[in-house]
Design a protein around this nucleic acid. Structure first.
Length: 594
RNA sequence: GGGGCGGUAGCUCAGCCGGUCAGAGCAUCGGACUCAUAAUCCGUGGGUCGUGGGUUCAAGUCCCACCCGCCCUACCA
């Protein structure tokens, strides 16, 4: 019954703090999913970390006079704090610059190499003459050979829209330092993706009807046109290539995406080591009954539905060339790739450089994590691009979180506390009482089913139906009017509090902080649902680094109706959610750049 | 250029295999109520479902073309 569920969450790139667009795609959905699965009794392993290699981090570090490692250290911590502040329940949120990650990435490379799925090839590529580093196409600009536009990038001309090869640009210049790029022959390792097209096709076909159709169609379509893909770069920042003659070279590293996707596995292994059972990760990666769910924004689909599965197939010896299973043993492919669309900001794309952005930490400094989590769950880019507006945020917060849900909790507990000082006993139940209780209990399987298939909007809507029904029930029963019949009053309030408790349970994946408070208000002892914490760790006495982890299994939260106990003392409640002054809309809009 | 997704009430969005699918929440307007953070409850108006064709007894729902937005297009991550 209990299943092992791997929640693999996209790795944020450590070149800046995260904004709410980032966390709406991978962060909140993956956490809602994981919290639900834990409550449903499954064994969840939720892993991620910061992705810290690659050219952009090196470039930014150079600009700031730091080493790449120093820059990565800074943003690794900032991002860990952002995600912890949101209450994202990672079992381990680590980073790609650990010795463990290097070792696992190299092991996967070697497994693929031994099976013949990685081969060397000499290609022409642009490098920066002064540093010898790969100059990615997008870092080169010049005059478009087709339309004559001056600001064309190496990969594409923004003016005429044509795709370009940087070697064809007239007067190519590096966008990093203005120098002319050198086009040189350079040897790289290629991942033989065409060798997996058949195996990938079979695998993807088996997901028909299970995955969100946009992800599946997109992925199937790519199969016809798979090309070998370079998985190394001319760069000194990254995971060394684990082959004789290459290992010690300062100028060749694995391509950042190749090592980043391996992070799901290396983080699982690191988690197992830290848990005291170094083999514990195998339950999620090698048990055929385990399920792996990968959460990301739509721009990452190809890496999770094509490249990472191909790497796993190759490591398992399951591509067209066959081969042996690697020394870690056979590894499971994703069960589902859950992709979000994009969030826009007041009708425009998020842009850090143009200040069209709201960073998670700034948001959390002024508003609560639950308010943001609720907004993302109910109005986020689950199936299509959606727009974040401050006025919509205030409306949702004040009208739904505060007025409908917060007020239901407040009015119910307040009335019971004032009149009885405790959870009252229920007497004889009327049809209306029973109907209310039944509606609430019946919502558990309905909301749970939606959560299990990552339909978060449907889930939160179903849960809120219970809230609305409860407000309606109170309006109809009018317990405040029947002071002369305390027994009837007790029954009504008992029912109301029971429904509050049920709704609190069903909203826990979305609103963990406030659900913990309600649990305590109703006399619960200990922790209801665990919250993440940052812990300083190291590897074999090396430098400390922060990880996110938590004791989520210690919480009492279960996905089930929990009878409340009559007689538990109740104190007058304090409001759960802050009502927002509509003036903040203009204040926040003034903070955005134009 | 090629591929994918989206374009549904003022706003944010649901609508799987074609036939109570023209919806929800908020906002508007009218009423009720006072336990509660002036919260809640009842009622109400509002959409030629991007445009133009087509298939069908029947189409937001299938097909074609076009327009707009977003993503990918393999050296951004």
């Amino acid at each position: 019954m209990s299943q092992h569920i791997l929640t693999a969450v996209a790795w944020p790139y450590a070149n800046g703090p995260r904004h709410i667009g980032h966390v709406s795609g991978f962060g909140v959905p993956s956490d809602v999913f994981s919290r639900y699965q834990r409550m449903a009794g499954n064994k969840v392993l939720m892993v991620s970390g910061t992705d810290e290699h690659g050219t952009p981090i090196q470039v930014q570090a150079d600009k700031e006079g730091l080493t790449a490692r120093q820059l990565a250290d800074r943003y690794n911590r900032v991002i860990a704090e952002d995600l912890t502040g949101l209450g994202l329940s990672y079992d381990l949120f680590t980073r790609t610059t650990t010795g463990n990650h290097y070792a696992v990435a190299q092991e996967i490379f070697l497994g693929l190499y031994k099976n013949g799925y990685i081969f060397p090839k000499t290609t022409m590529g642009a490098i920066s003459p002064s540093t010898g580093r790969t100059l990615p196409d997008r870092y080169i600009e010049g005059t478009c050979p087709i339309c004559g536009y001056d600001g064309a990038r190496g990969d594409q001309c923004d003016n005429c829209g044509n795709q370009l090869d940087p070697i064809d640009l007239i007067n190519p210049k590096s966008r990093i330092n203005g120098e002319s790029p050198a086009f040189v022959e350079t040897e790289h390792f290629m991942l033989d993706l065409p060798a997996f097209s058949e195996a990938l096709g079979t695998w993807l076909q088996s997901k028909q009807g299970e995955w969100r159709p946009n992800v599946l169609k997109f992925s199937l379509n790519l199969l016809g046109d798979l090309q070998p893909r370079a998985i190394s770069r001319d760069l000194d920042w990254g995971v060394p290539i684990p082959l004789d003659g290459w290992r010690d070279r300062g100028d060749k590293r694995l391509y950042v995406w190749f090592d980043a996707v391996i992070g799901y596995l290396s983080a699982s292994i690191e988690w197992a080591k830290r848990s005291g059972d170094p083999d514990a990760w195998r339950q999620w990666w090698q048990n055929p009954d385990a399920r792996g769910y990968y959460f990301m924004g739509k721009d990452n689909i190809v890496f999770h539905s094509e490249i990472w599965p191909a790497m796993l197939l190759g490591y398992n010896g399951e591509g067209a060339r066959g081969g042996a299973v690697g020394s870690l043993g056979k590894l499971s492919l994703p069960s589902e790739v859950v992709s979000s669309e994009f969030l826009t900001m007041e009708g425009r794309k998020f842009s850090s450089s143009r200040q069209i952005v709201i960073y998670v930490r700034d948001f959390l400094a002024r508003y609560s994590a639950d308010a943001l989590r609720y907004y993302i769950a109910v109005a986020g880019p689950e199936n299509q691009d959606t727009d974040f507006t401050w006025s919509e945020f205030v409306n949702r917060n004040n009208g739904e979180l505060v007025a409908a849900w917060g007020n239901l909790v407040n009015r119910s507990i307040s009335m019971a506390a004032k009149n009885f000082g405790a959870i009252p006993e229920a007497g004889d139940l009327t049809d209306a009482d029973r109907a209310m209780l039944e509606l609430s209990r019946n919502a558990f399987p309905k909301v749970g089913a939606e959560l299990g298939r990552s339909r978060f909007k449907n889930a939160v809507t179903e849960a809120f139906d219970v809230v609305r029904e409860a407000n309606k029930y109170l309006a109809e029963q009018e317990p405040w009017k029947i002071k002369d019949d305390p027994e009837r009053q007790k029954s009504i309030l008992h029912v109301a509090l029971q429904v509050v408790d049920d709704a609190k349970t069903m909203l826990t994946p979305f609103l963990p902080t406030s659900s913990n408070k309600i649990f305590q208000m109703l006399g619960g002892e200990g922790v209801w649902t665990g919250m993440p914490e940052i812990r300083e760790v190291n590897e074999d006495g090396g430098p400390d680094y922060p990880v996110i982890t938590g004791a989520y299994d210690e919480g009492a939260a279960r996905w089930e109706h929990r009878p409340i106990q009559a007689g538990v003392p109740l104190a007058p409640p304090t409001p759960l959610f802050a009502k927002l002054d509509p003036k903040i809309v203009d204040e926040e809009l003034a903070r955005l750049g134009d």
